[in-house]
Design a protein around this nucleic acid. Structure first.
Length: 602
RNA sequence: GGCCCCGUGGUGUAGCGGUUUUAACAUGCCACCCUGUCACGGUGGAGAUCAGGGGUUCGAAUCCCCUCGGGGUCGCCA
């Protein structure tokens, strides 16, 4: 080894020891007659002192050092002179008096700061990923990720779970997300697909009798990217035989609770995790992934609105829509500009517009609210009693601002969800140290898709349904309840799971209901259906988005900050500059031909 | 595919029709000075076709259009 110790591990107990360190020049302070170098390695930072009276040679080297030079330093660990300790540095009680210094490798001046956590255009960070990863914040994120994965492995191992790897080259099943395809050289014209998740494989492991499976699994989906979506991402995938919903939820609550207490003890959770039915979540928060760190709950005033002669309300209600809103405390003073911004946000989510209702900030009794005092385009269409009822419904106080959307229920909820989250951000209502894990349960099994004109699974087609709902499959599929659950944290969908179908007849029936012909079912799922015929145990499981989990623990805004080498919004790796064109030879071998030959002309 | 935001020395920002724009500030870079700093300090210096192209105007970093690049989001994500 070129080093005897790591920078970050040094402390009082090393005082008097001779050490050899190796790392990067994080910062330098050259005083002319004496120089200080903050030396950084993966463990942390320590101050190295170059004093010409101790070593003129080392001092000479110090003068030539620049940011990010890789150096080796031999010296003695000493307690810092009184008054020069640095409490901001973990190693601030000591320093290393350099006796010898060697430049192992010089460095170009980096294209952005590594020793300061200032935001840099993200494409630069992605292009120079190895430099961005040197930043202490990113190093901490990567280490946190390691700790999370290690904790999960240890935790599940102790519970008797077996980690099993499943293939990356599997069969394409074109429903759901788009597949990444891999051509087969040995089987011309045929393709593998990369797994969108190991769903079928883990169920087959249950049929195989493994009983408790988990995997830190890479998953691939060829869909558009978002702050919390990458084309390849990692799931904590697990499956257990002979379980019911409650077993999985309890297991998850235990994993997350002890995980947070172990790796992020300064963060808090709500225990036990609150639970919402899908219906309740949508009614109260407008979404099935509510952020419950703050209230700003949606209130339904459809019944009051129905009694008014306000055209906006009436037309929404006549179209079987809803009138709902949220109450923003102390926002009655919002300017026209601010209200316009909020209106645009609502429009961006499909709403025709936004009705705002400001209760003036002077003190008065809610029971005496009158339409001439309230600032709103709707005010003159509302009677005194209606205004009071609305105020009462929102528990509004003077100085509050109501944001109301009247439209189809889906649009109302979507727009108000967006407004609620935006306003929580502006009003800083969410406790940054709180991880509000929640379970959302009682999902419908199926959703009618206007686009494809058929039933589609809310979760996936392997989800079991409540036994008593089985007859509804034929009569009223919309009312069938799934044995499906979601884990949500701070408004982020962390994971989804369900009890699965383990009976061939039922599984076939679901496929038929989803619109597959007998032939399609056999071609795509025959292998799976046959497995269910050989004593498949009742089983269920869940898959947790690991990138999102680490993102929340690291308090980052995107999963790219917790992935070592992520792709940009166009799914391009800017460091490798890939995807990229390949040689014609490679295509020939794979029996492939580009449809537009010009594409390859680079 | 739609909508929104962004692009100014290496980096981060200011400037948002003409005025102290000869494009500013901070930091980084280079040189010199400095023996207890820790975001060290001081002096001096170099560094920008204001993303690219077109247009409006007497005059454009600034207004308009297009293109490119980046981000957010809707659709999409069984």
């Amino acid at each position: 080894m070129l080093k005897s110790h790591s920078c970050g591990e040094l402390g009082k107990k090393h005082a008097g020891q001779k050490v050899t360190l190796a790392g990067w020049v994080h910062r330098r302070r050259d005083h002319g007659g004496m120089a200080f170098i903050d030396l950084r390695d993966s463990s942390g930072i320590v101050q190295v002192v170059f004093n010409p009276q101790i070593s003129p040679e080392a001092y000479q080297v110090a003068g030539s050092l620049r940011h990010e030079y890789v150096i080796q330093v031999e010296g003695e660990v000493v307690s810092r002179p009184k008054g020069t300790e640095n409490p901001k540095l973990a190693t601030g009680k000591i320093e290393v008096m350099a006796q010898k210094a060697t430049v192992l490798n010089p460095s170009e001046t980096p294209p952005f700061y590594i020793n300061e956590d200032v935001e840099v255009e993200e494409s630069l960070c992605l292009k120079n990923r190895y430099l961005y990863l040197r930043r202490p914040r990113m190093r901490d994120n990567i280490i946190l990720r390691h700790k999370v994965v290690k904790f999960i492995r240890d935790f599940l191992d102790a519970k008797g779970f077996i980690e099993v790897e499943t293939p990356i080259l599997i069969k394409s099943t074109p429903e759901g997300a788009r597949d990444y395809l891999v051509p087969s050289r040995l089987n011309p014209g045929k393709f593998y697909a990369l797994p969108q998740s190991p769903q079928q494989l883990k169920q087959l492991l249950m049929v195989a009798g493994l009983e408790k499976y988990f995997q830190i699994a890479k998953c691939f989906r060829d869909e558009d990217l978002r702050a919390d979506r990458q084309p390849e991402f990692t799931q904590l995938d697990l499956e257990v035989s002979f379980v019911e919903e409650e077993d999985i939820l309890q297991l998850m609550e235990e994993v997350f609770t002890s995980l947070v207490e172990t790796v992020k003890p300064e963060m808090r959770l709500i225990k036990p995790f609150p639970r919402f039915s899908y219906k309740e979540a949508v009614e109260r928060y407008g979404t099935d992934k509510p952020d419950v760190r703050f209230s700003l709950e949606l209130k339904d005033i459809t019944d009051i609105a129905a009694q008014t002669d306000f055209a906006v309300f009436r037309s929404a209600i006549n179209n079987h829509g809803k009138v709902k809103g949220i109450c923003l405390p102390g926002c009655a003073h919002y300017s026209r500009h601010q209200l316009n911004e909020l209106t645009n946000l609502a429009r961006g989510h499909g709403a025709e517009g936004l009705i705002t209702l400001a209760f003036p900030p002077d003190s008065y009794q809610l029971s005496a609210v009158s339409s001439d005092k309230v600032k709103s385009a709707a005010a003159r269409h509302l009677t005194q009693a209606q205004l009071e009822n609305i105020a009462a419904k929102f528990e509004a106080k003077s100085g509050d601002l109501l944001l109301i959307v009247a439209d189809k229920a889906g649009i109302v909820n979507k727009a108000l969800d967006a407004l609620r989250c935006e306003m929580a951000r502006r009003l800083n209502l969410a406790d940054a140290n709180l991880l509000a894990f929640t379970f959302v349960v009682d999902f419908p099994l199926l959703e009618w898709s206007e686009a494809t004109n058929r039933w589609e699974p809310m979760h996936h087609p392997f989800t079991a349904l409540r036994e008593e709902d089985t007859p509804l499959l034929d009569s009223e599929p919309a009312r069938v309840q799934a044995r499906h659950y979601d884990v949500v944290c701070n408004g982020c969908e962390l994971g989804s799971g369900s009890i699965r179908i383990h009976n061939r007849q039922l599984q076939e029936k679901i496929f038929q209901l989803l619109g597959y012909s007998k032939e399609e079912i056999e071609e795509r799922f025959g292998h799976f259906l046959r497995a269910l015929e050989y004593g498949a145990p009742p089983h269920g499981g869940i898959a947790i988005g690991l990138d999102r989990l680490v993102m929340l623990l690291a308090k980052e805004q995107t999963i790219r900050e917790v992935i070592a080498f992520p792709k940009n919004q166009n799914a391009v790796d800017l460091m490798f500059d890939t995807p990229s064109y390949v040689d014609k030879n490679q295509l020939d071998e794979l029996n492939l031909k580009l449809k537009h030959e010009t594409l390859r002309s680079e």
